[in-house]
Nucleic acid binder design. Structure first.
Lengths: 231, 231
DNA sequence: TCTTTGCCTTGACTTAAGTCAAAAAAAAGA
DNA sequence: TCTTTTTTTTGACTTAAGTCAAGGCAAAGA
């Protein structure tokens, strides 16, 4: 297991910072452990700092009054989360839960604000992260409102293939129920769409491994959002 | 009409900056005019800078391949938009169009990055704006996926009443068609929901003026997202 | 190995909301 | 004021996707 020193150095957010500033950052980082299923923070909790994932996997989600979950993000190693309240001073706007045994670095609000005030290149880096996240949300809102579930699934598979550097097969890093929530639907619907897409020979599903049999077809589906039926 | 000097001073983003830095900002700002319906930028355009609204109203939106529009934001006086590509260096992720005669200040990318690099408190201000926007998107995604249209409308009305400082009536600053798009639906559906909510004596609609007759009922609807029928 | 527990799938049914088409009402120009 | 154009409303119909309920499957632990 890496220590805080090594972990901080490997975080993209802090990439390119001079050694003395990395040291400052290390000083304020606190290491925390969470088991699978453990809550990291809940919506409404005071936002007294943000986290960076050293090891593990974390989901950020909202819950409706009926208990239905909408996953906003799945974050992996090296990714920061919970930064919003650090700058707005407001409580966390969503919930965070470890979906695998995780080790996180926690950065207390006050210390970090001081750090960033003194350090323009760290703030530029932070601005880039937030901007990127804003861009992702833009896409997610577009998907939710302009595409039907099959289109969202196709987009996600293509994105994942790209992410994993594979052109014709992907492996889901989350359960299908969680994928359903990430896509803004429910497991039953997702399951039906998997079989429909299999019937159409677009994909082949084997547990968490998915073979992409018809890339052009998937691209079409992801772009023309609506209608799986014929087209 | 205010000049660039006065306009820049009034922008919350630049609030609290010392005079010499405000002057630097004024130097790089370019004033641009747009008539109602004019495109400011389109998705995919190179992001060579961002805008601040001096006068008018601007919508930020995505379009599906079938031409359906999803409005992401409506921005008014003093609000910045298009900042994302300034920090990611990527093209604009959505479209911007003036929905009223507008005067905008344009800040070219390079100049602004220099400015922010030299100026920690400006960057903190920028971080706060982006964080706030991220928080809004969080809510919007939650609404789109966890609530049905009546719940989203109720939320919006309550939000607007709060915004306008009125407790029992609001005035829409955008057309009902545009509101439909902002809520992720279509004008027909929105119209039907307006009449349903009127039948239930939750609201009274008179053109763009809406009286809120049953605030608790609206709150319940906005929280329990689903089901307008009985409940 | 057996059994428990959580995850996934399938079927039958319901429903919110979209589509298409046309009329009505409001707003903008001439 | 009287068009002309845009926005909004209504009606009839279709459909994607949600709900409820029951099985099946597979990994994890006894």
């Amino acid at each position: 297991m890496k220590n805080i020193f090594e972990t901080v150095s490997a975080v993209p957010l802090f990439d390119g910072l001079p050694d003395d500033q990395l040291n400052e950052i290390r000083k304020i980082a606190v290491s925390k452990h969470f088991n699978k299923g453990e809550t990291i923070f809940s919506e409404g909790d005071p936002g007294n700092g943000f986290y960076v994932i050293a090891e593990g996997l974390v989901k950020i989600f909202k819950v409706s009054s009926e208990g239905k979950e909408q996953i906003l993000h799945i974050f992996g190693i090296g990714e920061p989360f919970g930064e919003v309240p650090v700058f707005t001073g407001q409580p966390f706007p969503a919930n965070a839960e470890a979906i695998a045994k995780s080790r996180l670095l926690f950065f207390p609000r006050e210390n970090f604000v001081d750090l960033i005030t003194a350090n323009p290149s760290l703030s530029l880096s932070m601005l880039a992260v937030l901007s990127m996240r804003l861009r992702q949300f833009t896409v997610q809102i577009e998907n939710l409102s302009l595409k039907e579930v099959p289109g969202r699934l196709a987009s996600y598979l293509l994105y994942l293939a790209d992410e994993q550097g594979k052109s014709d097969s992907v492996r889901l890093d989350i359960s299908k129920s969680q994928l359903a929530s990430l896509l803004g639907t429910i497991p039953e619907t997702l399951s039906r769409i998997f079989s429909k897409m299999t019937d159409m020979k677009l994909i082949k599903v084997d547990g968490r491994d998915i073979k992409m049999l018809d890339r052009p077809g998937l691209i079409h589906l992801s772009e023309h959002g609506k209608n799986l039926t014929t087209s």
